[in-house]
Each structure stands twice: as C-alpha cells, then as structure tokens.
Design a protein around this nucleic acid. Sequence first.
RNA 1: GGAGGAGUCGCUUAGUGGCCCAUAGCACAGGUUUGCUAAACCUGCGAGCCUUACGGCUCACGAGGGUUCGAAUCCCUCCUCCUCCGCCA
Length: 423
Amino acid sequence: MLDINFIRDNLELVKKAAHNKQIDEGLIDRLILIDDRRRELVSIFDDLRSQRNRAAKKRDVPLGKEIKIKLQELEPQLKNVQKEYQQLMLQVPNLPSKDTPIGETDQDNRLVESWGQPRNFDFTPQDHIALGKKLDLIDLEKGAVTSGFRGYYLKNSAAKLHFAVLFYAWQKIIEAGFTPMVPPTILREFALVGSGHFPFFKEDVYQIANPGYLVDEKETGESEYLAGTAEPSLLAYFANTTLKEADLPIRVAGWTSCYRSEAGSYGRDTQGIYRVHEFAKVEQVVLCQNDYQISDQWLEKMKDISTQILKDLELPYQVVQVCTGDMGAGKRKMYDINTWMPSRNSYSETHSDSNLTDWQSRRLNIRYQNKQGERVFVHALNNTVLASPRILIAILENFQEKDGSIIIPQVLKNLVGADKISA
RNA sequence: GGAGGAGUCGCUUAGUGGCCCAUAGCACAGGUUUGCUAAACCUGCGAGCCUUACGGCUCACGAGGGUUCGAAUCCCUCCUCCUCCGCCA
C-alpha cells in the first residue's frame, strides 16, 4: 500500500508503475474518484458529528435526535465508499526502482551475476526423475496416488538430503545473525493481505475448509489459509507495533512447510519435483529503516547470504534482476537466483530476493520511532535462504556419476552421514 | 469442550453514561538553562481533515455491531491473553 497523499501528488509516477507492472492503470483513476467522494463524505460527517457533539454537550435532545437521523441516513454511503477505497488501495502497486529493467516477462530480466560453470558430462546425464527411481529416492507414482497431482515421496538418502540441506541453510542464516523462528503456517486473512499475497495471488493460496464454517454452512468467523511461505507470518509477528529505531534492523528466519495450489500453472513443469504443492523452505526477512539506500543494501546482503550457500554446495547459479512485468505489485527491486539444472538445460528459479520498502509495513502497520521522534513505516525485505525439494534437482543431477551414483556435496556429508548415494 | 478474569497513545497507568473532544509517569523528540554530561523546567509525542498562519474539527479505549440526544463506561458477537477444570499429544 502507498500513502494516498503520495499517490495524489505523484499520479503520473504511480500510473507509470502500474503500466510497467502490467496492472490496469484505470485503477488509479478510479481510486482518485473514490477518494474525492470519500473526502467529501468524511468532511460532511466530521461536520455533522461536530454539531452532534455540541448538541449533546448542551443536552439538546431534539437537535441531537435530528442529527442522529441524518448521520444514520448517510452512513451506508460512507461505508460503501470506504470499502471500495480500501479495496482499490490494496491493489495500487509499489514504484519499481530506477534500475529495474522495464519488461513484460522473465525474458526481460537482466543477468547481474554468474557463478560456476554448467558441468560438461562425459556421459549422458540422467534427470532427477530417473535417478530418483533407480536409487529409490523419489516416488512420484505413490505420491500421486496418496496426495494427487504433483504429490511426491522422498525416500532414503533423498529424505536425508532434504533435511540436511535445509539444516545447513538454517545454520548459515543463524550464523548471519538472524533470529530463528518456527512460525505458524495456518494463517488468518490479515497476514496474507498484509504481505500482499491477497488480493494478488489469492488463487494460489489454499483455504482451509473447516474453520470459518459450521456443518450447516453458517459462518462462524474468519477463514484460515495455508501459507505458501514464511514471509507473511514473519511479517505479521510485528503487525501493529511501533519499534524503536535502535531495534532495527530486525532480522528473522523462518523454517516452514509451504503450500501452493499452483492454480493457473496447470501444464507447466509437470515433471518431477520442480513445481509441487508442498515443500519446505527457510526464509529470511529483514525490517530496516525507511531509507532506500539502507534497504537496497540489505537486498544485496540477503542475496549474498543465499548465493554463498549455493557456492558452498558447489552449484552453479545466476542472479537476474527481475523486470517490472515479472515482479509482484508490492516490490521495488527484486532478484531471482537461478540454479543450474542439467535436465532443464537452464538456470531455474530457486530463490527470490525482494525489497518491498514500506508497501507491506503500511498494510500491517509496522512502524518505528525515528531519531526525530516521528513514527514512520519500516522497510521490509525477504529472500529465500533455501527451498527443498526443488534444490534437490540441482544436487542430484549435478553430482551424478557415470556409474549412476551421486556424490554428496562436501558440506552436507556429515549431515547426511554418507559420502555418496549408490544403488 | 466447560467456568471465571482481563485487553486504554511504545511501556506502565487513571477512569463504571455527560465534569473524558481520555489521566498520569517512563521512554522518545525539540527548546531554555549550561565548561561537558546530567539534572531541572517548558513544549510536543495514536490516526486523519481544514488552515499561509494563529487556530479549529473528527475519529481512536482489542475488533465489529447495537442501545442512547450522548458510550472507554451498558448490551450482543468475535479475537487475543491469563487462571482453573476436563480431554488429548
């Protein structure tokens, strides 16, 4: 969410941001019209309430009754306008940074960093599906039987590797000074509205059927949702709080299961464990001062933490700066970290590093008192530390040997308790 | 699942239908004083609107409804926390 006064003062900038992010620019015009109406109604209300308060003070019962009726008549109008205003405000995108490439799809992302070389195999490499089958590591058939489309079982060394690589990342992010947290994954709506997952990605979020409804379908309260990342719950931890500037930067890391319905991606990446409905992820979140220079520095630092882990794992990667059309509405600047996956013959997305400035903190009301004594919204950032099993594709495929075995990356050998996986 | 208690501006806190358009302390910010620091004193310190300014107005007492001319205060629903009982890991 942006400040309404900022939007009004910078209409063309905001419209341009919407245009470049492929969001309907008409939204901004509708918002301004509604806000005009809202301001008009609010001042009428302020005036009537002022009269009412004065009448009450004078114990003027007839005048009070008269004003009360007027207010009651106008109230539905104000409520409707405010509701519509809120809905529109939630859709206004953040402004992308000046150095963000303008583009429409991931084809327009800009390569900014490259490490390692794709391995030249002196034999025909197998994909993780074949390797997983031969070494009894991944069972997609049973996964589909038990869980449905995109279900999977990790078995034996793959199950060990899954936790080993996550735990390795977990240790690294703690060493980097982040506070480890195991946050909830069953979330109330406000957390997802706050992070910006709602309304933009609502179709990708699983809604839990039972809470919210009784057997007779009467609503009992708000619905709950399964989180697709720890980001909303880590941010919501600080919702409606005023921090002290000395508390910043706040650095937290969450290890959670992640759930994604992948509605809208039918037919994409249907093979193997690349795009699945549930996975595990260690996520890093930073809250810092409301200062672009500081938050952009954190974006770089968070990127470096994640890429260092890929270096430790000896996995070739590339970092791309994501273009306007491929970044979310709330983002100012974003990097994707893509790891080499031989079977896909490409660097494929394994991490996503974003600076959302105060777009989320305004939704969640996360502020701090600055040195001047003012209360201002924090800047919020998040990045993947490591997600599995997707990363296992890179590990299994890059470390395979001619004899069909797989070498365990050096840094994981102790955690897995083996040097290699063989039949 | 059942029974009680509680939620007031970052923290602590006053307040039980009009004297509350919410009290006080701490923290924080600005100022006065001042070798330095501290102390003391003054001002500000939840959100918004109008105003060049002076100043004025509205909203906010966990959330949403309701009663009333008037609600922090009374009623209803919900959320959160605490205590106790029951059940379960």
